[in-house]
Design a protein around this nucleic acid. Structure first.
Lengths: 325, 325
DNA sequence: TCGTTCAAGGAAAACGATTTCCCTGACGCT
DNA sequence: AGCGTCAGGGAAATCGTTTTCCTTGAACGA
């Protein structure tokens, strides 16, 4: 059989016995039409399995209901929750997401940007993990851009970043409230922006790597130092897990002798630790939603500017407890 | 200043002093034009920052250079590498990916499907983690679909799945070659398709959950059973890590007394274990590439059918070693 | 010199919607 | 009866490209 050509609004109009313009109005609820006409057109559309061609529509309306999401570095663990949040917020507005992975390559990034512009996306969300800020992307006029997780270097751009310092402060407050006073911070590489920000609220910090093995090593260093400590606040969950394991195996009780905290609230690590880790949740899905909503506003003509911080919150598990009297 | 309207091919043609048709030919290298004309048009386009409107183009060419990727369950750890592989293979063909997250909700899935169809995507990749097969999606005629990771229930559809049984067999062969003969398999829930497939090659299996704590619990069960065993092949890396920790803490040496293997090769778990885990890598990125390439072929008019298995391979680390003589 | 052929590029018809006019009756009012 | 108003719906312009025809001159061979 001849492959049944996909139905156009022409076919619908013909079947319903009206003009194409009328069919369009009936399907979109525009203009003034008799109820009977509307249902006749709708039935015809239903019968033909008609789905409006988005390209044709956006040519006319100058809206594509598409936004691009560019990840600076490769899409990974941090991008996923944000992506979900973004999809969530945009899906409500019937907007789809075009995903672009720049892999830290400026050429790839430029190429993806050109593709997005040629598709006339309604807006762009830029994300990535690397540093604290990144050079703004050049998306010509009329295309709103929101930066998520990392901020644009241009403070006039609109960015949403997690409140990492606030999260760290929450840890410190929590530990202090538990009566812990000799707190050490163990975190990732000193050149890493997040490491420095998270460390900023603690008086004493050890820099290393973002890994469990560094956590174990750091615990050994702390024990060898011989100085008393009753809490270790870690720069991420993996370090915290390493610290926890090493302390336990050295005969120290976590959380009674030493409280330990993580950062990122990565369930697979934090919940599998013994004991499960108190950790900072940056609410990346919420951050993604926030970025998407700001983008929607910008698309609607109310662009926001400046860097907005999105609150983090503490998830308390068994690795922190008040000092024994 | 009046916002400079985005340049169209009309503007380019006017600036270059040619007709729009000619400009189009010059930019796309069609027809026969003088070299001088071509460069003149290209310069004009460059000067105006012209980028062709993809909607208008695809209206004409009936190609959108877009494919949709629908994830059945929520996009997560398994989708990422596949997504990267897909993007990789499609990016070469200048095709973009529209990401849709159905979250196990048939309504959402139907909605996303309609959106993709209205966008006239060139093809669709369906992925997800849940079961071994899933009902085929209803993407009208003319839109090729490839299922990745899980297969379509209709064997005439085109699917690409990891060779889980082959991976498990590779583990068994590896352990056997090391002289291990009393092998126990510890894996996830019995109702889970992957658990059963992976278990199928082992004579003795314990079903539980996909977690570290189940791994620890299983190790305790094995030790309490009192039967000798010299290897534990686990259904995933988290279980393997739990098993490893529990065995070590019970005074057994891994890998000398007992060899342990994981599955999935999830770096953050496998490499952080003590010792690092020998594990099966399903090459999800490669699987994504394979699926994308099959889709490209289908789009080009050569659809493949049937379920293709993509090979897995063993990554050998320190958790497996030959039995001491 | 007179067709032929061919390169070069213009004109216009698609592609599939939306939207703006405009036309036609029916109705109400004086 | 005459006039304005308004609901209902048709016709056609429009969005920005690509592609198919045409129309030119110029070169060329007989």
């Amino acid at each position: 059989m001849p492959r049944p050509r996909i139905a156009t609004i022409r076919d619908v109009a013909a079947l319903a016995g009206v003009a194409v313009g009328t069919a369009s109005k009936a399907l979109n609820g525009q203009g003034s039409l008799r109820a009977e006409t509307i249902t006749r057109v709708r039935q015809a559309a239903e019968q033909l399995g008609f789905v409006a061609n988005a390209a044709a529509r956006s040519l006319q309306t100058r809206r594509t209901y598409t936004v691009g999401m560019i990840t600076t570095d490769t899409i990974g663990r941090f991008s996923i929750p944000m992506l979900i949040g973004v999809e969530d917020a945009l899906g409500a507005g019937r907007i789809s997401v075009l995903l672009c992975d720049a892999r830290d390559d400026p050429i790839r990034e430029r190429h993806h940007l050109d593709v997005l512009l040629s598709r006339r996306v309604d807006g762009i969300i830029v994300t990535g993990r690397r540093a604290g800020t990144r050079p703004p992307i050049d998306a010509g006029p009329g295309v709103p851009v929101v930066y998520a997780f990392l901020a644009s270097a241009d403070p006039a751009d609109c960015s949403v970043v997690p409140d990492e310092a606030g999260g760290a402060q929450a840890v410190l407050d929590h530990l202090t409230a538990l009566g812990r006073s000799r707190i050490v911070h163990v975190t990732g590489p000193a050149h890493h922006h997040s490491a420095r920000v998270r460390a900023s609220v603690f008086p004493d910090s050890l820099y290393g790597a973002w890994s469990e093995s560094w956590g174990r090593q750091a615990a050994a260093i702390l024990l060898a130092r011989g100085q008393h400590f009753d809490a270790v606040a870690c720069g991420n969950d993996q370090i915290a897990r390493g610290v926890t394991d090493a302390l336990r195996e050295a005969g120290h009780r976590v959380p009674h002798d030493v409280a330990v905290t993580g950062f990122d609230n990565w369930a697979v690590i934090a919940e599998a630790s013994r004991p499960p880790l108190t950790s900072v949740d940056m609410d990346l899905a919420g951050l993604g939603r926030a970025a998407a909503n700001l983008l929607l506003q910008a698309i609607a003509g109310n662009p926001a500017t400046g860097t907005h911080t999105h609150p983090a919150h503490l998830v308390i598990r068994d690795s922190t407890v008040a000092v024994s009297p």
